[in-house]
């Protein structure tokens, strides 16, 4: 029973990591019809940036977090202002699947390259926000950072889902992704929404990196793997539903945890990807992909 409980906890912890990234991806896809493959890299910058400021430059932790989040927001804003503005607003982007995949994929390359120069190639992590040993309830262990990440995932996912459903601004966001021209016709500034959401999701990913990096530690190229797991989880939420993205992320984490706990420790991840690929291929309708992505 204890083993089961611990597997659930570790599953939820890694699931929450997928969930946060999936939420970021789903929200931006909903607004811009593009996948943000660089979300994981923003998380990496958050974690390693704070680590650099605190450990090397001796900054105060709170100040470092603030500074890094501002940097992330500026980078995201600049990227949108320069690249996405030309790509989308000037109509230079190729329609469809190419745009969905490749634009932020290039950004991911650049961010990783810069991180390689700035942060080096050693694994680091931001200082824990809730320091101390893992919590222990009668044999059930859970890392404090894990609790923070799970909480963060739930708050962000549920909050965004509610916002999309019950506010006009939330509906306007959905409208931007559904039909950008239609959105502009009713007076929704879809470009500003796109920019705002891109910056917001980048910052959310950064916060997540700062909260969650003590669990695994980050290195300059951690972002790609994180982003990919986010994409997979988001795919099972049809790419557009932040609420479902949280559920999908947590379920994938649990599945992974059970597979490696009960089936095979070494190949837990392999099995997980096998199962996910099989579901995608044989039951694509389970993903509920939106029309544009088909």
């Amino acid at each position: 029973m204890t083993e089961f409980g611990n597997l659930v906890l570790s599953g939820l912890t890694s699931g929450a990591i997928y969930a946060v990234l999936a939420v970021c991806l789903a929200l931006w896809f909903r607004v811009a019809n593009m996948l943000n493959l660089a979300a994981g890299d923003f998380a990496m910058i958050g974690a390693l940036g704070v680590d650099l400021l605190v450990r090397v430059h001796g900054w105060n932790l709170g100040l470092s977090i603030l500074a890094i989040l501002v940097v992330i927001a500026l980078v995201a804003f600049a990227y949108d202002f320069v690249v996405l503005r030309i790509a989308v607003d000037w109509g230079r982007a190729q329609e469809g699947i190419v745009a969905i995949f490749f634009f932020t994929f290039a950004l991911s390359f650049v961010l990783e390259g810069i991180a390689q120069q700035v942060f080096g190639t050693v694994v680091h992590a931001a200082p824990a926000l809730w320091p101390g040993n893992a919590l222990d309830f009668h044999g059930l262990h859970v890392q404090r950072a894990g609790v923070l990440v799970i909480g963060f995932a739930l708050v962000v996912g549920v909050g965004l889902a509610l916002c999309l459903r019950f506010t006009l601004v939330g509906k306007a966001m959905a409208a931007c992704g559904e039909n950008p021209i239609g959105a502009r016709i009713v007076g929704i500034d879809s470009r500003r929404f796109r920019r705002a959401i891109f910056v917001l999701t980048a910052v959310l990913a950064g916060v997540f990196g700062i909260l969650g990096s003590p669990i695994t530690g980050f290195v300059y190229n951690s972002g790609a793997g994180l982003g990919l797991s986010g994409v997979v989880a988001a795919a099972f939420a049809g790419f557009t539903r932040p609420g479902r993205a949280v559920a999908a992320g947590l379920s994938i984490g649990l599945l992974e945890s059970f597979l490696s706990g009960y089936v095979n420790t070494a190949y837990g991840e392999t099995l997980l990807y096998g199962v996910l690929a099989a579901v995608m291929l044989f039951r694509p309708q389970l993903m509920g992909l939106p029309e544009v992505a088909r």
Binding site: I97, I100, F101, G225, L228, V231, V232, A235, Y267, E269, T270, Y273, G274, L276, A277, M280, L281, F282, P284, M287, L289, A293, R294
Partner: peptide, 24 residues
């Protein structure tokens, strides 16, 4: 198997291939 799936599912499923193979 994979070419029967819709385009995006094909892309996503094949993106996953390298991970288990590298592990193995």
């Amino acid at each position: 198997v994979v070419t029967r799936a819709p385009g995006l599912a094909l892309a996503l499923a094949t993106v996953l291939f390298p991970i288990p193979v590298t592990t193995y």
